[in-house]
Design a protein around this nucleic acid. Structure first.
Lengths: 226, 226
DNA sequence: CGCAATGTTAATTCAATATTAACATAAGAT
DNA sequence: ATCTTATGTTAATATTGAATTAACATTGCG
């Protein structure tokens, strides 16, 4: 489903906001909006969208300027940014790309083109967004891309099941995962394995990482803590 | 200097080819041309350009089809491809993005916009394209241009598949590439070859470079490390 | 205490990968 | 074209190391 993606629309004209919002929601995207540049920055910080669509012509702070400020925010380095321009404004295409835009979209907007364009943009952005699947907790970093766990700078290579188990527990530190849930997530629904299997994997993780990271909650399951 | 970048222009109208070529060369880009889709594929394979600009409307094989075939070539996964379209042909924008285009450029073409656009495109592609020029890692240098691998000063000639496999793994040292990803990148999407084929190529690389450069991550894939 | 849940270790099973050699195909040479 | 060699692929078999289990030990809560 497209709702994996959140899109922030920024335009001073409510009609356009409405029109875009309607079309994007219909495709299943999560949509949030802002009426001007200042608001856009606030919302962007809060919502962390995957894509921001900026009208170039706006009072006070125009799209170019907004884009520049957005790009300066640490968390928003990897967001895709597209500009909305009137067909004739060539100058803004130039300025836009210089300021770090990923695409521009001409008005008047045709829904089919819009959607197609956005799909392409998000697909392109995915590569970098996906890379950031790293977690960092209590001196331990789980690096999915390289498939290693880094503890105090040392790389630890874990076999698949151990890695996935650790990743699951660490994905919500403090939360207790029942054995059932663990089997379901790490092993996959249908697989049936013996009772002691999880314990053994936990043992190995404790050997490799230290005894204190995974805690047993008797009668319930296991949790990661640091 | 811009001449780090090679651009392939494809159009059936000599005038346009001439016009674009002139403007791009003036900016310092290396330019090569083709008059139709078939020719484009031949030239692209030979020249390995960073960016291909394709006219959508061409006799025989149109831009969309050409793009599809280009994308299917293993060596050209990372090329940037831009389409040249008449302003009205919205349909081609849709089809174009679906087929893996990175941008489209409207006719009539204004030099300033063209250059700005191309700069942006190349910058975007840089991450992957530039890396593929020359990499230097742990005593190994991969020289795409000369298609050789240099290890401790010695030149090693690798067959195509071995070279591409090594180049892929080395393009992101440490990153684990799944077999699926490897097949997709090195062999190309449609081709179906057995799983053991990859192993055999890995073995040959290990024979030639040493056992320790390619590490297998059981259940996941392979990674390059040094 | 007694019992059920969890821990531990080592042995076993099993699946993924490695290896080799045979076969197929493409590229170059004559 | 035909021969020749380099490259690519497959199939059969071996090997490795991860995953699982079995057997027994320990814990901790009612």
């Amino acid at each position: 489903m497209n709702s994996d993606y959140k899109i922030l629309l920024v335009d001073d004209e409510p009609d356009i906001l409405e029109f875009l919002s309607y079309n994007l929601k219909k495709e299943g995207y999560a949509v949030c909006t802002a009426n001007n540049g200042k608001e856009a920055i606030v919302v962007a910080k809060r919502e962390n969208p995957h894509l921001i669509i900026l009208d170039v012509m706006m009072p006070d702070m125009d799209g170019i300027e907004t884009c520049r400020e957005l790009r300066a925010l640490p968390g928003l380095k990897d967001v895709m940014i597209a500009f909305l321009t009137a067909r004739s404004e060539d100058y803004s295409q130039i300025a836009g790309f210089e300021v770090g835009a990923d695409d521009y979209i001409n008005k008047p907007i045709k829904p089919r083109v819009l959607i197609s364009r956005i799909t392409a943009l998000l697909r392109r952005g995915k590569s970098t967004a996906e890379v950031n699947q790293k977690m960092d907790l209590g001196g331990i970093r789980i690096d999915r891309e390289r498939y290693v766990v880094v503890q105090d700078g040392k790389e630890i290579n874990l076999p698949k099941k151990e890695f996935e188990l650790l990743a699951l527990l660490a994905s919500k530190p403090g939360k207790v995962f029942t054995r059932e849930a663990i089997l379901d997530q790490v092993w996959g629904g249908e697989v049936v394995v013996g009772d002691r299997t999880i314990d053994v994997h936990v043992r190995k993780l404790r050997e490799k990482l230290g005894e204190d990271f995974i805690r047993t909650v008797k009668g319930i399951g296991y949790k990661f803590e640091f």
